[in-house]
Each structure stands twice: as structure tokens, then as C-alpha cells.
């Protein structure tokens, strides 16, 4: 049985990836609201996903405030699809 990707097999990182699989882009505030997480924790997990090359996080400014916009990469999309396939095996869904 294929092992589940440890980077995705975590509550918050999986939630972020699930959202980004479904939209073109989402900003930090939207992700925080939808995942019901704290800013600090979300920031750490976004950094991990960015370092792995699964998402991109583009920092910009709106007036004087910073705005971080996240997008999933092709590599992230593939990793997520493989994770879901492996999950199906574990849960005997195929």
C-alpha cells in the first residue's frame, strides 16, 4: 500500500491544499477564515507548503497593509491527486 505523503497528511496543510485545489487563488485572510486557524499557525504551514513547492505565496500591498495571495503549483496539484489516490487505498474506496 502506498504511503500517505506526510507533508499533506496534516490537518491544516491538507485543508489549505484542499481549498487551493478548488480555486484559482486565495488570500491569507480567506484561508484563515475558511480553515478557522490562527494567523501564526497558518503562516507556518504556508511556509512549509511553499518550501516544498506545492504552493506559491505572493506578498503584495493593498494601501499600507500587506496581502499574501496563495496559488497551488502543478507539483502541488500532482501531490494532492496522489495523496487522494493513496487515501482511497487506505479506506478501500476503489
Amino acid at each position: 500500500m502506498k504511503e500517505l505523503n506526510p507533508l499533506l497528511h496534516s490537518q491544516l496543510r491538507l485543508a489549505v491544499m484542499s481549498i487551493l485545489m478548488n480555486v484559482e487563488e486565495a488570500d491569507f485572510v480567506y484561508l484563515k477564515e475558511k480553515t478557522e486557524s490562527t494567523a501564526g499557525n497558518l503562516s507556518v504551514q504556508i511556509d512549509k507548503l511553499t518550501t516544498a513547492g506545492y504552493i506559491t505565496a505572493e506578498k503584495g500591498f493593498v494601501g499600507k497593509k500587506t496581502r499574501t495571495v496563495c496559488r497551488i503549483t502543478e507539483q502541488g496539484r500532482t501531490a494532492f491527486e496522489e495523496y487522494v489516490e493513496a487515501l482511497k487505498d487506505y479506506l478501500n474506496l476503489q
Binding site: L12, L14, V84
Partner: peptide, 24 residues
């Protein structure tokens, strides 16, 4: 939402729940 170990079934629930939340 916190950073913690999850079961396979919980994974599926998270994915389903997040898809539903972005459906608006």
C-alpha cells in the same frame, strides 16, 4: 484548526469540508 496527527477518515472529512466551504 490546529496542527495535529489525523486519521485517514479525518483526512477525507477535511477535504470534503473544505470543498463545501469554497463552494459559495
Amino acid at each position: 484548526m490546529e496542527e495535529k496527527r489525523i486519521t485517514e477518515r479525518e483526512s477525507l472529512e477535511i477535504i470534503t469540508s473544505m470543498i463545501a466551504r469554497t463552494k459559495e
